[in-house]
Design a protein around this nucleic acid. Structure first.
Length: 850
RNA sequence: GCCUGCGUGGUGGAAUGGUAGACACAGGAGACUUAAAAUCUCUAGGCCGAAAGGCCGUGCCGGUUCGAAUCCGGCCGCAGGUACCA
């Protein structure tokens, strides 16, 4: 070989690793274990550059940990259930199963050439009956322990297609296929009791010291612990059985600013009024229109309906407040009823202004005024304010203090009681869809809801289904539903709801420890491999997936499937940024957006055109998403430059946690650099030794070991790569002898090996390294070689740099000050003036203040 | 709407209280070559200046500090999440 050829060396070394079987994980008590896991992909069809970035990061960690003596588990699988497979079946015919497994084949075929150090023998897809059967077993165990139950909850209902829609399928309040106005409709659904663990899931965040602070903050806010007052307003002239309206408020201190009571359209009182009053019924119907997302509800126009009913204010029985039905109050939150305080709440202010309700202040800025009529006064709860209509506590106090005082006061006076509530709701897992894990229960006329027997698991999905009409094919399957009641044996019907795909991804990390076992986990394997030492995935999973997994680990512990120590299953978390790309969109005949692949769009002068000349609308920087067609296929880069170049390239430049707008500029340069490293090794001559040059090179080598290792340890792969560029330049320019250079190059190959494993093996072999570099121990920096004797200090005058001095590392402050004041640039700037003060920060800087 | 981040040259980015722009891309100049490719060398934030040097500069406005890209307050823009996309 006369030049670097990725095509020649990469398959060769992949074979060598395979033959040595070094990536197959086996329990070995003699070594510390290390479990590194990247969030497994959805099999959308082809891998995209974001996957390459994600899995390369994981592979760097896996290879580095292997080199530092760890017994590494690094598995891969597929999150294979979900809507896109059904959408594909609807759009193009075919079966979700075929579509999914064929995608998995393609993606595995694309991943293997990248040379990831994965234990492929552990691979599974969540749609394998072997996997989801064990998930059904978990479900039954959870059910037995009271962790699962049924209740009503709202879904997006498409009244034309007569089907439940996912939030994604609701566009501007209308069904994506029918175009009909979506309504919120109640359905009986299965729930996990995650809310029982709210407090624990919140407080345990403090123990996750290797998680990003932002993820913990997001989860804490999501769980949303609040202290408030629950009390009842007495209704005047209420319908029979409705003499009270129970409300919950986090701001009881503003009770004297109340101007109305609002109830949800799904509140029992609203439903009662609806029966007798067609006007109420019409309003409630309108109020139920639109999707179920928090965003849709919050952003919708605030609508209210005055029921004509009044309640008495608890502290002034002569004070009557009107009762409104309002579309922004959800039955799922709190009690489904609120009191409105327009003076100190944006939403209530908007509502009061619209319906001409009074706006009353209860507190104002400590010194100053605030025009409460034109805008609400909403300071942070921690800020001190001056109360004008005080319930309890000091006149001037923080909102927080006032809330506590008000709760105490109300309790003493028999107006309700203080309660702690959480925003976190129970996890609805029912999906009215085919391509998911069947919920293993049976509905029997005599026995009710009966769990399926474990020996009958898995409850398998039937293959003979069609997607030509909307709705759940399991509901209309002629025979699949029919079964015998596991309890009494009478004919019964299977549950046709399947599980949310978040269930599938909430325990796959545990399954990887024993992927073929005939129980969900195996004690010895779970105890040995858990926890995941390093979990790596997208920030988009910061809340739901991670919170659900934390709950699941607890539930699996309770049901005996995970040890107590695995209740927090991910020791360290790293959230890598997303790879974003512009979306190219045109409008179809029906006015709906049509998305175009980047490779089909010509960019000229900031505008994009299709091959037929049509201009496309460019939506900048969005998460790569199959449904938006803004994905970039890495195959072109891999086939042109090889896997190592692709790996090196996705790690260079951008810090791993940051989002990157994808651009292929620079792949060429990455490839050139790898070729250069290869050439340095291949063309190593036999220059005789030269002590000064050799030592200088070896010093740089130890610094490189130190810096590159530090970069990998802290997920600063871009920083490691910058150092590796620098070290390569140093070697190339060095006049050192062949012995020192060989040592430096072998070290360079090792330091690069987590990123560019194939090239590193090749260079290692060329230089006569022993065995596989993948099995060589990681180099260790010699502390002595890292220390420089002198240091260059910048000298500032009034914070502006005017010169620099080079001094011995440990020179004392007074001496440094003297030299600094003698500096030419300093003297020129001082221009004879006496410095007022000189600040010397040893080893860092000198600042002269004049 | 709400929660969480992010914003630095033509571009990706470095610097987490101490020399702003490391390293790299694109650019410019040059060497080698008949030529090209490959490789190598130099250059490079903006403005003024022949140079020495000076002034300005990290989304915008203000503050703290001897010193702020970094800390604090307000604003603008972008991204992620918002419980049925995964």
């Amino acid at each position: 070989m006369t030049r670097y050829s990725a095509a020649e060396i990469e398959p060769k070394w992949q074979e060598a690793w395979d033959e040595a079987g070094i990536f197959q994980a086996r329990r070995d008590e003699a070594k510390p274990k290390y479990y590194v896991l990247e969030m497994f992909p959805y099999p959308s069809g082809r891998i995209h550059i974001g996957h390459v970035r994600n899995y390369t990061m994981g592979d760097v960690v896996a290879r580095y940990k292997r080199a530092t003596g760890h017994n590494v588990l690094h598995p891969m699988g597929f999150d294979a259930f979900g809507m896109p497979a059904e959408n594909a079946a609807m759009a193009n015919g075919g079966h979700p199963k075929d579509w999914t497994y064929s995608n998995i084949d393609t993606m595995v075929g694309q991943m293997k050439p990248l040379g990831f150090s994965l234990d492929w023998t552990r691979m599974f897809a969540t749609c394998d009956p072997e996997y989801y059967g064990q998930q059904q077993a978990l479900f039954l165990d959870f059910l037995e322990k009271g962790l699962v139950y049924r209740k009503n909850a709202v879904v997006n209902w498409d009244p034309v297609d007569m089907t439940v829609l996912a939030n994604e399928q609701v566009e501007d309040g209308r069904g994506w296929r029918s175009g009909a106005l979506v309504e919120r409709r109640e359905l009986t659904q299965w729930f996990f009791k995650i809310s029982d663990y709210s407090d624990e899931l919140l407080s345990a965040l403090d123990t996750l010291d290797q998680w990003p602070a932002k993820v913990k903050t997001m989860q804490a806010n999501w769980i949303g612990k609040s202290r408030g007052l629950q009390f009842a307003f007495g209704l005047i002239d209420a319908p029979h059985g409705f003499d009270r309206v129970e409300v919950y408020t986090t701001r009881p201190d503003t009770l004297m600013g109340a101007s109305f009571v609002g109830i949800s359209p799904d509140h029992p009182l609203a439903k009662e009024l609806e029966k007798a009053n067609p006007e109420v019924a019409a309003f409630c119907e309108k109020a139920r229109q639109g999707g179920t997302t928090e965003e849709a509800i919050e952003k919708a126009e605030k609508l209210g309906f005055d029921t004509g009913l009044k309640v008495r204010h608890p502290f002034d029985t002569a004070w009557e407040l009107p009762v409104y039905i309002a579309n922004f109050i959800l039955m799922d939150y709190g009690t489904g009823a609120i009191f409105g305080c327009p003076g100190h709440d944006e939403r209530d202010h908007e509502f009061a202004t619209k319906y001409g309700l009074p706006i009353i202040d209860t507190f104002l800025p400590v010194d100053g005024d605030h025009d409460i009529q034109s805008a609400p006064f909403v300071p942070a709860k921690s800020e001190k304010v001056r109360y004008t209509r005080l319930i309890a506590g000091a006149e001037i106090q923080t909102g927080e203090e006032a809330v506590n005082a008000a709760v105490d006061f109300c309790e003493k006076n028999g107006v309700g009681h203080g309660v702690t509530k959480f925003r976190l709701r129970d996890w609805g897992l029912s999906r009215q869809r085919y391509w998911g894990c069947p919920i293993p229960v049976v509905h029997c006329d005599a026995c009710g809801v009966v769990p399926e027997k474990k020996e009958n698991l898995p409850v398998q999905l039937p293959d003979d289904v069609s997607f030509d009409i909307p709705g759940n094919p399991l509901d209309r399957h002629p025979t699949w539903r029919d079964c015998a009641c596991p309890s009494c044996g009478a004919p019964a019907k299977r549950e046709t709801d399947t599980m949310d795909t978040f269930v599938d991804s909430s325990w796959y990390f545990a399954r990887f420890t024993a992927p073929r076992a005939d129980t969900p986990t195996v004690k010895e394997d779970a105890e040995y491999w858990m926890n995941v030492d390093q979990y790596i995935g997208g920030i988009e999973h910061a809340i739901l997936h991670l919170l659900y997994s934390r709950f699941f680990a607890r539930a699996m512990h309770i049901t005996g499937h995970l040890p107590d120590s695995a209740k927090e299953p991910f020791d360290a978390l790293f959230t890598q940024g997303m790879v974003t790309h512009a979306i190219y969109q045109t409008k179809g005949k029906d006015g709906r957006p049509v998305y175009h692949y980047p490779e089909d769009v010509d960019l000229r002068d900031g505008k994009g055109f299709l091959t037929d000349g049509t201009e496309v609308e460019i939506i900048p920087s969005a998460k790569m998403s199959k449904s938006k067609n803004n994905v970039v296929d890495p195959v072109a880069i891999i086939s042109q430059y090889g896997a190592d170049t692709a790996r090196w390239f996705v790690l260079s430049d951008s810090p791993p946690e940051r989002d990157v707008e994808w651009t292929a500029a620079g792949a060429e340069a990455a490839s050139k650099h790898l070729a250069r490293v290869w050439r340095l090794a291949a063309e190593l001559d036999d220059t005789p030794e030269n002590e000064a040059e050799d030592t200088a090179l070896l010093r740089e080598m130890h610094k490189a070991i130190n810096d590159v290792t530090g970069g990998i340890d802290s997920f600063g792969f871009n920083a490691s790569i910058a150092k590796l560029y620098g070290f390569t330049n140093t070697i190339a320019k060095s006049k050192a002898g062949a012995v020192a250079k060989r040592m430096a190059l072998k070290t360079l190959a090792q330091l690069m090996s987590p990123m560019t494993p194939h090239l590193s093996e090749e260079v290692w072999a060329i230089l006569g390294g022993e065995g596989l570099i993948a099995e060589a121990p990681w180099p260790v920096a010699d502390e002595v070689m890292l220390v420089d004797d002198t240091v260059t200090l910048p000298i500032q005058v009034n914070g502006k740099r005017r010169g620099e001095i080079t001094v011995p590392k440990d020179m004392d402050k007074a001496e440094v000050e003297k030299l600094a004041l003698a500096d030419e640039g300093v003297l020129r700037t001082l221009d004879g003036a006496q410095p007022k003060k000189v600040i010397v920060v040893p080893g860092r800087i000198v600042n002269v203040v004049m």
